[in-house]
Design a protein around this nucleic acid. Structure first.
Lengths: 383, 383
DNA sequence: CCCACTTTCGCAACGCTGTTGCCAAAGTGC
DNA sequence: GCACTTTGGCAACAGCGTTGCGAAAGTGGG
């Protein structure tokens, strides 16, 4: 079986991977080519799902020769990551063999660390949830207690996952450093400032750990789940944030600071926001919600979304979060109205930016967190 | 000599380059590796400038082995793109041979097509301006007349450039389609809507032509010119626009629509803008300029810049354009003040985003337009 | 039923990439 | 003058995708 672990140890033995220091860009060698093409094929296998995909189709889609695809898939089958799954009907010649991903060849744990609860899932290579845990949590109870609870919950799921476990992804609210896995000011919980969550958890569990913002995790999950192109995931809950996917990969910025959508000023010298500034979208939007004026809240949110759409020229806006879920129709229509109006003003050029409710329920963030470990296998850049 | 043309014909003979259709991503083969590494080395040679750089230094910076660098540079020297340029002092052993780019091995023409004038430059591989033309122009005079003037001016410079000419880059105002080189509504000149500028000019001149927005060209020029990381170039002239560089490459978005900074709403239901909306940064900012309140204009611009910095987590804001040039100090200080204030609110995390005046004079856009052809040689993505 | 044709796909040889092992050249420093 | 360090080229090598070729397994016409 071997599964995904063998692949990883193979890649890890590359003496040159991540050896470079300083500002230099990475030169490519044959190992890079190999892992790039392998990831491409794996991604197509994953996308094909239970339907499967033939070797020649893989060749067409990747631009590689059929022979190269044969070699790559042979390796994947040997490693247990891919398998033959029947044959397709003939189109005038030999019937094509259908290949599919073996989902059980690898697993990852995704944890959504929220202010008042902990939600963890174990997912397979297909991204399907295999097991789930949930626990109440008090982020203010201190690092030791929280990390303990986190490790315990994740540990239970790891035990279920067998030996092909890629690691644990943790999605947390508030500013943090994705590259180093360190939390910054979690709003309202100053004691977390600077806490090295990734290393603490990795040492405790003995598996790789990746930390990211909740909105980024959600956006990654959506991107891997099939949302193509560039899009913004806007999350309206107790706060307002965004996850940006630009060209199939999550845009975090050099300091994991990107996506600070809520404190975009759309009302110069407007009402004060808890952040200290005035006229932030978050303040205006939530105030409208409090006044029981969801249509106005949607209009405000739409204005922010339109600004973002203009700046980045994205393909889609996805809405999610508890507050959205309370009145989904109103928000989708309200935001769409602002974007449609903007497209109308732009004339022929302005294809309107579609607005949709985020598919999936309240496990979105936890599933996305698991993708922090899975996505790199499929060539989805992670930093 | 050969120069850059031989390299291009070599790459063009790749039967698989750009053959793929549909949504598939590109598989990598050895030709891709070769051109990637070659571009990496060329970029380092270019960055090193007249100082030059040794083979071992190239190896360190690229992560390639010294032997690979030797092979690559040998090829470049054979093609006339690189040359030895003396020796460095010893550090305890054999003295290192210094290599440098041969700037004359390739040229490109950059044209800044503005509303009332035409500005064209011929630059070498180093990006240095070798020749320059300038002409008055009336964008409203119709496509035939304008393309004629454009072709004539560019043609004169092409004649100066010898045989190693990569092509012509054209930077134009207003919305356009970079991928297809088609103009959209140039504000105030509806007759240009849908005009295939790239193909018209390419046929006329018989050389490759690339078209882009003026702000994108300027941003590309700045990125190639040495501005590292991610930054936003804000251009305040008769209008207000932005060019975004994210991770060393220009972000245009799928429809070349990114960077629409001016019509970002920062004053909900504010004063009407000529675009049909209300409270756009451009309207507020230019109104303040008209009222002779540059400090207020800078504050408004700063608010927009802060929104952008928060959304994208960029490293730097660069200011340019005629209106900025009229009161540079006030604008730089005013915008910086807003960003500093924002960083202060963010606390320890908030490294402030530096604001600078764009270096170089009013040739910035034309030089950037030339980089539309040069940058791909150095591995700077162009799409 | 047979034969020509198409489609799928693997084996073997190949070309080209960066890598490794080795050695010569050219310096420094004792 | 000798030991050592640094630079960098030559040659052999491993591994990538590619090409040439042929076997296997279908379809379809006579």
């Amino acid at each position: 079986m071997g599964g995904v672990n063998r692949t990883r140890s193979g890649a890890g033995s590359d003496p040159r991977s991540r050896t470079r220091g300083g500002p230099g860009q990475a030169g490519a060698n044959l190992l890079v080519v190999r892992s790039h093409n392998t990831a491409l094929v794996l991604d197509l296998l994953r996308t094909a799902g239970s339907e499967g995909i033939s070797r020649l189709e893989l060749a067409e889609r990747t631009g590689l020769t059929p022979q190269a695809v044969s070699k790559i898939t042979a390796r994947l089958r040997e490693e247990g990551l891919a398998a033959e799954a029947g044959r397709r009907a003939s189109t005038g010649g030999k019937r094509a063999t259908v290949l599919r991903l073996v989902p059980e060849a690898g697993h990852a744990v995704g944890v959504h660390l929220d202010r008042d609860e902990l939600r963890a899932v174990l997912v397979d290579l297909d991204g399907r949830v295999v097991a789930e845990r949930r626990a109440e949590l008090d982020l203010g109870a201190g690092a030791t207690a929280v990390v303990g609870a986190l490790a315990e919950t994740a540990g239970e799921l790891i035990a279920d996952g067998g030996d092909a476990l890629l690691g644990v992804g943790v999605a947390a609210p508030g500013p943090l450093d994705h590259d180093h896995g360190v939390l910054h000011r979690v709003t309202g919980f100053p004691e977390w400032d600077g806490f090295p969550l990734r290393d603490a958890l990795a040492e405790r569990l003995g598996v790789p750990v990746v930390v990211d913002k909740d909105t980024n995790a959600a956006a990654l999950g959506l991107a891997v789940g099939g949302e193509g192109g560039s899009f913004a995931y806007l999350h309206l809950g107790t706060g307002l944030g965004a996850g940006l996917v630009i060209g199939d990969s999550v845009h975090r910025g050099p300091r994991t600071g990107a996506g600070e959508f809520g404190h975009q000023v759309i009302q110069l010298d407007g009402p004060p926001c808890h952040c200290g500034n005035r006229g932030c979208v978050e303040a205006l939007c939530l105030a409208a919600v409090d006044r029981a004026e969801p249509a106005e809240a949607a209009r405000v949110l739409g204005a922010g979304a339109a600004n973002l759409a203009g700046l980045l020229d994205i393909d889609q806006v996805l809405l999610g979060g508890r507050t959205i879920a309370a009145a989904p129709e109103i928000f989708v229509r309200g935001v769409a109205a602002v974007l449609d109006e903007r497209a109308r003003r732009e004339g022929a050029l302005g294809t309107t930016v579609p607005v949709r409710l985020v598919p999936g329920g309240d496990r979105t963030v936890a599933e996305g967190a698991a993708q922090l470990l899975l996505a790199p296998l499929f060539g989805r850049a992670n930093g």
